[in-house]
């Protein structure tokens, strides 16, 4: 064991584990509470933001999107369109025998 190791080992004996003071636990909880308050506010804000986001998504999905959806240009088939165009002619035409 060299001299430095001896000094460092003696240091362990020279500085024993101190007894915690009576104010240790109350002081610790005071610090925890002090830091916890902003965290709680932030958590409440995050929760409110999440709820607001969910409501907005629901509103967009159920109200806005159906309203903004335009009717398709062609809602009927080609045959239906032809039939409508020539409805009068078909009525006047003699029946096929």
């Amino acid at each position: 064991m060299d001299e430095l190791t001896g000094v460092l080992a003696a240091y362990r004996e020279a500085v024993p584990d101190p007894e915690p003071g009576e104010s240790f636990m109350p002081g610790l909880w005071a610090r925890i509470d002090a830091r916890r308050s902003p965290v709680r506010v932030l958590r409440a804000f995050a929760h409110a933001f999440a709820v607001l986001a969910a409501v907005t998504v629901l509103f967009i999905a159920t109200v806005l999107i159906p309203r903004l959806q335009t009717a398709p240009v062609y809602s009927a088939s080609y045959v239906d369109v032809l039939e409508n165009e020539h409805a009068g002619e078909l009525a006047e035409a003699p029946p096929v025998r």
Partner: peptide, 19 residues
């Protein structure tokens, strides 16, 4: 706490700041 305070005491060597 006692063990940790002891380690801190020897790491920083300033008794007034250990707690």
């Amino acid at each position: 706490r006692k063990r940790i305070l002891g380690t801190i005491a020897r790491l920083i060597n300033r008794p007034e700041d250990v707690e």
